[in-house]
Amino acid sequence: MAKLTLDRLRKVYPNGFVGVDDASFEIHDGELLVLVGPSGCGKSTLLRMIAGLEAISSGELRIGDRVVNEVAPKDRDIAMVFQSYALYPHMSVAENLGFGLKLRGAGKAEVAARVREAAAMLELEPLLDRKPAALSGGQRQRVALGRALVRQPQVFLLDEPLSNLDAKLRASTRVEISRLHRQLGTTMVYVTHDQVEAMTLGQRIVVLKDGRIQQIDTPMALYNQPANLFVATFLGSPKMNLLWGEVVERESTDLALRISDGVELPLHPEGALREQVRGYIGQKLTVGLRPEDLHLAEAGPGTLSAHVEAVEPVGNEAFLDLGCDGCELIVRLPPHDLPKVGDTVHLGHVPARMHYFDPASERRLDGLGAAVPAAYDGTAAQAPVARDA
C-alpha cells in the first residue's frame, strides 16, 4: 500500500489545450478516492498520468516517497482496470487472471495460488475454465477486477469500470468494489462521471471541471456545503433548485429574495452569514434549495406559488416538476396524495438548508467574509475542511 502525492500536476497537449491544470492533493494510504466530473473534465487524463500512460507536462507525482514522473508504467507498482474489459478471448478465465503474473516471471505455483485467491474473493471459481465469450457482462468485469487483484499492487486505478453494465449490475458491482476495498485496504483511485457512484463509493471525492479541481471533500460535505454552483448542481439527483432575484430588506429588517414583482422568498441567514447576505441588498443573489428541502404548504406569507408541470412517481417517493415565475423547481415528496398536472401548489422551505451563491463568481457564501474559492487548487490556504454531515 502507498499514498499518492500530486503536486501541481499539469497536462498540456501539443495544440495548447490544457487537459489538467495544477492538480494538487494527496491520496491517503488505503483510501478509496473518486475523481468525478462531466465528460471532458480531465478525470481520465489525470488517472492516466498517475498510471504513466500520459506524460506529465509539469509538476511532480509521488507514489510513496518515490517521484515517478519518468518511471515506466510497468515499474510504478500499480494495476489498472479499464472501461473496456480487455480480456484475451482465446484464454480461459484462469489464464486471463494469471497472464500478467506470468509476464512478470512468477512461478506456476505462485500464479495458481494467487488466481485461486482472487477467484474465491470474486466468486469466479465455477467459471475458471470458461472463455470470456461464455461470460455475462458482470462476470467479465469481475474477471477484469481479478486480473488487477492478483498483481497485489500498491495502488489500484479504476477508469469507469461499470459504465458498460446495466443498472442492476452496476449497483451490485459497486457493493462488490466497496467490499473488496474494505477487505484489501489498498489505495484505490476510481474515475466516474456518475455522481451516484461517486457518492456511494468514495471516502473522499475530487470534483473536476474543465481540467481544474473545484472541490475536494467527503461525499456528504460536498452535498451539504458545495463550494460553488457547479458542485451544487452536479452532485445530487435531482439537482439543486436555483432561484435568482434581488435581495431586499423589509421594514422589520427581514431579508427576502425578490424573484419578480409580488413574488418574494424569505431569507433566514444567521450570524455572520446574515451580514454577508445583507451586503447584497439591492443586488442580485442566487439561492439554492435541494428538492427535499421544499414542501407543500398552505398559501400564506413566505410561500411560493408554483404550477405543476409533471408528476413523477418512482415508488417510494415522487418528484414534482414545477414552474415558478420563470424558475424550474423540483420537489421530492412521499408518494401519497399527490397534486395533478395543471394544479397550482404552494411551497414552503427549510430556511436552515438554504444555500447562497454570488451570481457573478458562482461562489458559495459561507459567512466567513469572502465567498469560498470557486476552484480548489490544492494549496494549504484553500484546502477545504471536511465536515461531518
Results as ranks from 00 to 15, higher is better:
260 S>A: 12
261 D>H: 13
263 V>M: 00
263 V>S: 00
266 P>L: 08
269 P>S: 11
270 E>V: 15
271 G>Y: 15
272 A>G: 12
277 V>M: 15
278 R>I: 04
281 I>S: 05
285 L>M: 12
286 T>V: 10
289 L>S: 02
290 R>P: 01
290 R>M: 06
291 P>E: 00
294 L>H: 03
297 A>W: 05
298 E>D: 06
300 G>P: 02
300 G>Y: 06
303 T>M: 01
305 S>Q: 15
306 A>C: 07
309 E>Y: 01
310 A>V: 15
310 A>W: 03
313 P>M: 09
314 V>A: 13
315 G>Y: 07
320 L>P: 06
320 L>R: 09
321 D>R: 04
323 G>K: 02
324 C>S: 05
324 C>G: 03
325 D>R: 08
325 D>Y: 01
326 G>R: 01
326 G>N: 04
327 C>G: 01
328 E>V: 00
330 I>M: 04
333 L>W: 00
334 P>W: 06
334 P>G: 12
335 P>Y: 12
337 D>C: 03
338 L>Q: 04
340 K>V: 05
341 V>N: 02
344 T>S: 14
346 H>I: 02
353 R>D: 15
354 M>W: 05
356 Y>W: 11
357 F>M: 06
359 P>H: 09
362 E>V: 06
363 R>P: 00
367 G>N: 13
369 G>A: 11
371 A>T: 15
372 V>A: 09
372 V>N: 00
373 P>Y: 10
375 A>G: 04
376 Y>H: 08
377 D>A: 13
378 G>W: 04
379 T>G: 11
380 A>E: 13
383 A>T: 08
